[in-house]
Design a protein around this nucleic acid. Structure first.
Lengths: 344, 344
DNA sequence: CCCTTACATTTACGTATGTAAAAGGGAGGA
DNA sequence: TCCTCCCTTTTACATACGTAAATGTAAGGG
């Protein structure tokens, strides 16, 4: 087992190269003469040494770290988004520190605190809904490059944002549903989630534009801790039990709710179908990774998570390099794209 | 907007309290006289200041950080496990730094490097399968408290491990399936995943114990990047297309594969059912969060992710406090529990 | 052979905090 | 009134490394 060396100083006496030279070597071996590089590498092979992360970051003007906060970990949409962000950040040579707020504003606040104390170069935050503490976001924004991702409160119009154009995406699928079958009802969520509200409104305005009467169900919570799937199943299950909605088109606020909705249909012997012009159809929003494996596979609108993650990172990089703190905020909305499967 | 203060030194002149006193205050306000605490808190309310994370951790003997590596982010089983670990760590007052290896041994190695450079107090690693670099794990283990979680190579028997007793869990569901219907075939995975292999072997030995002939399908990859669901769907879809397996009991290596299997059944107009003594039944392993919402809901064996996460953290805490580096490794295996739903 | 040049290396200082030991201060007792 | 004790605060040093400026060194030209 190799002898362990803890500090660069010790390493320098062990190898016989000055400490600052080692420092240069660890930053970029090209900055050191080839002959010396060889000596250093030979030395490193003989001992167990890793430069101290904290000492490194403490001194650098820039830490090369970006912080990412996501609200849920048990949601494949967010993990997909996170993967996209991580990939983009890695390509840019940044270290990503991810924190999950677990639907808790206090944890979110603590994560923000951590980022500030780390002097991260920038923060990308996918906020909780209503519950997020606005002051926390403002504080982050005032201290460092900051972009909101996925959803944003209407009360923060002056913040950089990257997300989906829900007006477009929800309009797209609403229009599709109207075109090839009965105009859809909207299976909503209790109104604590910004995106859910945006989609609900987008649905309403598209329906009115097309001259149909909007119909919204599911705005009341069904249980104490209603997960999305559970909510969809409960709301629609109750309706089906009363013989209602069984031949309707139903647009769910997101795919996880749709998963519950499809389950409810199955429980009542109903099969939502794209072909059934006058019968039950169920559609969702997001293109959750499991959509193709549902029975029937879910028709939905895909969010371009890849583009969102990439853009969030590139925007952060812009903000980092643009010294000035008073940049005009940029709102980037990506269009959704229709993914037709069998359910609607 | 409050004036921003960057260093504890500046803060000390701004408030009129010496810097070391502030240091004590931030570590534990009880260490400072009440009167002084009030002065400090009044001062903090007037300015924008956060202690520097790196400087803090650099000096402390213990960083209060534990590192966690998981192989996939887009898998609700691992995110569930991660939540359990995070909750336990938070309760113990530890900061968790999570890194995802994204199925890439190089990324895993880099994450390990990061942990070592951070002088994390301990590391909990859910390894990739075969691909994981054994040397990386050994290096981690030689430097800091280290426990493997979820799966482990047979080649590392001397490492602390927390996971599921697959012999028991797989035996349990195999026995159940044999008891209430036809003996199951096993829908396996290409043999790169340790747990998959363990379950396959557990299935074989239980079948032999019960006097049945084991039958294993799906050990060959079906595509270049066969995700679990895709694999299950492809393997079983191909079998169904040939009229095979349509009235069999099928035990899938995990729930994600089972999701694909159920989809394949549905595509061929088949409904796996618990009631069908002689007909098609499909079961899984893990109790993936979406199991209740499949059609039919999936019968499976639940892994006790909560216990696994808690135990991993408590074991790390033990190793941290037990100074000595030569502790007898502890292998903790939790039993799985049968979750009967409609599919088998 | 000496000087210049270009680059590598070293010196010296900076970073933001922890921590042990020394100094300070206030209350209570003689 | 003075001394002592105990707790609080401060002094002084330590941590592990980045970085700019200064110094060293080897190659090439005159």
């Amino acid at each position: 087992m190799k002898p362990r060396i803890n500090t660069m100083e010790e390493l320098s006496v062990a190898i016989g190269v000055s400490r600052p030279t080692l420092s240069r070597f660890f930053q970029n071996p090209d900055l050191v003469k080839k002959k010396t590089v060889e000596r250093i590498e030979a030395g490193l092979a003989r001992v167990e040494y890793v430069p101290n992360f904290f000492a490194t970051r403490l001194n650098r003007k820039t830490t090369g770290i970006i912080g990412v906060i996501i609200p849920y970990l048990n949601d494949l949409f967010f993990t997909k988004l996170l993967q996209s962000v991580e990939a983009a950040a890695m390509e840019a040579g940044l270290t990503v520190i991810t924190q999950c707020s677990h639907s808790d504003p206090h944890i979110e606040a603590r994560a923000a605190e951590t980022f500030m104390s780390m002097n991260v170069d920038g923060a990308i935050v996918a906020p909780l809904g209503d519950q997020s503490d606005r002051a926390v976001h403002l504080r982050l924004k005032s201290r460092l490059p900051f972009v909101l991702m996925d959803s944003r409160p209407k009360t923060m119009p002056n913040v950089d944002f990257v997300g989906t154009n829900h007006k477009q995406s929800t309009g797209l699928i609403t229009e599709y549903l109207c075109r090839v079958g009965k105009p859809p009802a909207f299976l909503a969520m209790p109104r604590v989630n910004f995106n859910a509200v945006e989609r609900e409104n987008a649905y309403i305005s598209k329906m009115e534009e097309l001259g149909f009467e909007p119909e919204i169900i599911g705005t009341q919570p069904v249980g104490p801790s209603s997960y999305f799937e559970e909510h969809g199943q409960a709301v629609l299950g109750a309706a089906f039990a009363q013989g209602k909605m069984t031949d309707r088109s139903i647009l769910c606020v997101n795919d996880r709710v749709a998963i519950g909705a499809i389950r409810a249909a199955s429980q009542h012997g109903l099969t939502p179908s794209r072909g059934a012009k006058g019968g039950l159809r169920i559609a969702g929003h997001d293109d959750y990774p499991l959509c193709p494996y549902l029975s029937p596979p879910l028709t939905t609108v895909a969010q371009d998570t890849d583009a969102i993650g990439k853009k969030a990172v590139s925007r952060i990089l812009q903000l980092i390099s643009s010294e000035v703190s008073e940049v005009e905020p940029e709102i980037t909305l990506f269009d959704g794209s229709l993914v037709l499967r069998d359910s609607a």
